[in-house]
Design a protein around this nucleic acid. Sequence first.
RNA 1: GUGAGUGUAGCUCAAGGGUAGAGUAUCGGUCUGUGGAACCGAAUGUUGGGGGUUCAAAUCCCCUCACUCACCCCA
Length: 417
Amino acid sequence: MNRINAPRGTRDIVYPEITAWQILEERIREFYSRFLYREIRTPMFEHSELFQRGIGDATEVVQKEMYTFEDKAGRSLTLRPENTASVVRAAIEGGLFDAVFPLRFFYIGPMFRYDKPQKGRFRQFHQFGVEVFREENPELDAEVVYAAYAFLEELGLKEISLEVNSVGCEECRPAYLKVLQQEARAHQQELCLDCRRKIDTNPLRIFDCKQPGCRAAAATFSTITPHLCRGCADHFAGVRAGLDTYAVPYTVNERMVRGLDYYTRTAFEITSDRLGAQNAILGGGRYNRLVRDLGGPDIAGIGFAAGMERLLLHLEIAPGKDPQICFLACQSADSRADAMKLARQLWRAGYPAYLDYSAANLKKQFRRSDRMNAAFTLVLGTEESASGEVSIKDMVRQEQVRIPQQELLQWLDQRKS
RNA sequence: GUGAGUGUAGCUCAAGGGUAGAGUAUCGGUCUGUGGAACCGAAUGUUGGGGGUUCAAAUCCCCUCACUCACCCCA
């Protein structure tokens, strides 16, 4: 039989790595509840149309990276490549815009994109993120960015930088895109083939190209900032002022573009120097048209998503100390019943306990106890069984006592405090 | 989707056409009432898979799969 491995781009998370994940998730929940975000869990697959309409048909994600399949009834479903569209869908469907206040959600969970795996990039990966609805004040944008940045800071991430930009709205962006296209056409010869195609499909993306020719040409193109309409310009100014008030260090990158079509006005991104090519660890922005475009009321939204693998890649989360494990060693099968009764007491009292059923010689059992980092080894030998006692060896202090079995819990309780 | 590198024991890696090896981990013993050490011993492989060249392939060639890194894109 040939072995079956995990599908490409997926991986198993096992102990001890899993403890870092648990700690990270715990800290996300604690941190974001400070801002009154409430957790939301949406399905891991949705109707494909949700992502096509939400993220944008022309985006790379929708065109090339979706895990789309047909179910037995012929519906086209897609494993979620991101969670914003789902949250919006859930809010519309559940009538949450009227039922819940404040309209603040956070999520943690797996996302799926059919990419070629490399460092920090997987086909099943995990994101956490937040979404806020209805509030349109630029100060809220600043708060959301603060909530993104401060969390990473509190985790102890070093070498991260925050960039913000305004990508305009449906009022001012089309006019700017026309200007940009004209400028790009004038410099066509200097652009790579890829970028020449982008002129018509997605001119903003030319700013992302790393080819020297394209970079040089793009540097001469005008940015959106002078083309922002009054509303967007004022909003952007308000966001920057808010960031200053919240004391968030940022740089304005007028050429920053995001990969999803639904962003309006504020867009932001946090990158790390330590991740190789996949250096984006968090990205987000405002999406004032998305709710309406997905059939909901005309309500604004803003949010971000962060990649948990990338976060953990350069985060040394110290694994929590193992709890005080009790290892129960029996010298022979005769004392096993005593050991089982003691183990049951320990479990019921909340002590982690491991019972070695092998009745191998004590030397071996002590070795096993040592290797699982037990705090105590409880020995039930023929002598202890005969007298109703148990020997307890403190594996760290290397001290050993023998006490009546009934006093075990009491002894441990004392030891704990 | 494109490109490069790497696949040999659970793990880290040797052997570059001529009998597949070491370290480590595992298990057993020295040592059936006491762990971390030492010594001795044992087990473990379709050399990722398939095809080809050859008297002979882990080794050379082709295909395929996986991993790693980069491009693309993104978290």
